[in-house]
Amino acid sequence: MLTLLLTWGLAYVVSTFGTRLLARWQKRDSVKELIVRLLSIITWVFGLLLTAIILFPGLTPAKALGGLGLVSIAVGLAFKDIFENFFAGILILWRFPFERGDYIECEGLVGKVERVMVRMSYIRETNGELTVVPNSFLFKNPVTVLTNKASRRVMITTGVAYDVDIKEAVQVIETAVKSCHTLTDDKPVQVFPKAFGSSSIDIEIAWWTESTPLGVRRSTGEVITALKAALDKAGIEIPFPYRTLTFKEALPLKQIDS
């Protein structure tokens, strides 16, 4: 019992002082956290081995390590998913580019990384819900780090009527977008006619803004509002869908007496 208490105390000391010593190290926080956890695990393993040797005097370190190997195989087979998530968590903490506070997207899950544990990660979705994700899920599937950079590009498409001067429309749109305050100043605004739509000339608009989901939504709303006001002021029509109906035979007209 005393050995276990000493092991617990030593693991606490290793964790506390390890965190303080690594705080000055110019590495990612996830790497520092991983090293501290591995040191704590090693401390507990040696502490449990020492306790077993004390409790069973005939047990030598070689026998203890051999027995530990057999137990590890049995436990590994019984708890395959748990160990899979454990090793996936180690690889995520060591190699993956996202940190606590980043926004990520993975298989339809979009949210802020609140904590990366060894076996699971806590993702706060944009609607406020907390999702606990097994690390193997993040390791096996493509993960998009939305906030890997301070800004990212946003694209929308608008349309103008076919009788509008396209060059004039592009100039009006570009001026309107550049007047918005949520744009990243050192990134370009790009406006290009894209395609012949069913009832309009489609124009693609791209700009850069804050990379968080809220920043993108805020900037998109400002740009759309500015575009509508600028096109209305210039007398440029944003057309509704037009449909031309052609009948095989002429439709009979019937006069209604008033």
Rank of each mutant, 00 (worst) to 15 (best):
R218P: 00
I173L: 09
P97L: 12
G111D: 08
E114F: 11
T182K: 10
F192M: 06
V133E: 00
G69V: 07
T225L: 01
A150W: 07
A62F: 00
S258G: 09
M1R: 06
S211Y: 06
V154D: 06
L65I: 07
Q26E: 13
R37P: 10
C106L: 07
G108H: 02
S121L: 04
L214F: 10
E105G: 03
W8C: 11
L77F: 14
I256M: 05
L10T: 15
A250T: 08
S219D: 05
T60I: 02
F46I: 02
D165E: 14
I42D: 10
S40A: 13
N135T: 09
D186C: 01
D185R: 10
V177F: 04
R217P: 04
E168D: 11
Q171G: 11
Y242L: 01
P57R: 09
R24W: 13
V216P: 00
T220F: 03
I42H: 07
F247M: 07
I41F: 14
Y12Q: 13
V154E: 04
L227A: 08
V75L: 13
G9S: 15
T244N: 00
F79K: 10
M117P: 03
A234W: 07
I92W: 06
D81C: 01
E84C: 12
A23H: 08
I238F: 04
L214H: 12
F17S: 09
A206N: 12
T60G: 03
D29F: 14
Y103C: 06
L5R: 11
S258R: 10
F247E: 14
V14T: 07
T225Q: 06
